[in-house]
């Protein structure tokens, strides 16, 4: 009966003279560990806008908006909504560039207006010059080009895009003259239109 009391008293006295377990958080910045999983952030220079993070997000916290009729050409915006985010790190793990989106150690994401905390990244879109279908972002095509190396020359879209980038006049510069024909394969067209161009013969009949 006596022994437990002494033991508890010892703990009570230690607790009395030890620092409170709580921290002065709002007044002093709280320290977080190095590997803390906080709010994900896009790196605008590295992100290529492939939309992989949008596809793998289990909580659907990443929104992908393709604006085809915007001023200054079609654009793709990737928006991260921290309110839906579960901070699992899947976006970072599945990023094709490895560093396009990264979890930061930031955790203070309470807000009155959601726009103050959302993080977004905007990319120029490459659309099919024949039907207007989305092919991918310009940066993504160039990323694929660099990754493929010499193999990329078998891909008309990447090579045409590269010529555009280098301001070399090529088949891509020429205008489409309907109906679609074989030579249009070398222009910036979506896979569907390229197939259509491939099966069109010289007499412009299918």
């Amino acid at each position: 009966m006596r022994k437990p009391k002494i033991r508890e008293l010892k703990e009570a006295i230690t607790s009395l003279f030890s620092r409170p377990f709580t921290t002065d958080f709002p007044y002093k910045p709280a320290s977080v560990v190095k590997r803390y999983r906080g709010k994900p952030k896009y790196n605008e220079d590295i992100c290529v806008g492939c939309g992989g993070c949008f596809q793998v997000c289990p909580a659907k916290a990443i929104e992908m908006v393709d604006d085809l009729n915007g001023e200054g050409g079609p654009t793709r915006t990737l928006i991260h909504h921290p309110a839906q985010c579960i901070f699992c790190g899947e976006c970072q793990r599945n990023c094709i560039t490895k560093e396009g989106i990264k979890l930061t150690t930031e955790f203070e994401i309470s807000y009155f207006d959601e726009k103050t905390v959302t993080d977004s990244v905007k990319h120029k879109l490459l659309v099919c010059k024949h039907c207007g279908e989305v092919i991918g972002t310009e940066k993504h095509i160039m990323f694929v080009f660099k990754k493929l190396g010499s193999l990329a020359f078998s891909q008309p879209v990447t090579i045409s895009r590269l010529m555009e980038e280098l301001e070399i006049k090529g088949a891509a510069e020429e205008k489409f003259l309907p109906p679609i024909q074989r030579t249009d394969m070398l222009k910036i067209v979506c896979p569907k239109c390229r197939r259509l161009a491939f099966i069109t013969d010289e007499k412009k009949e299918r």
Binding site: V33, R35, Y36, R37, G89
Partner: peptide, 12 residues
Amino acid sequence: FEIITGNRNHYA
């Protein structure tokens, strides 16, 4: 947990 996995709960 926070040091190992990056979060106090929901360790992923």
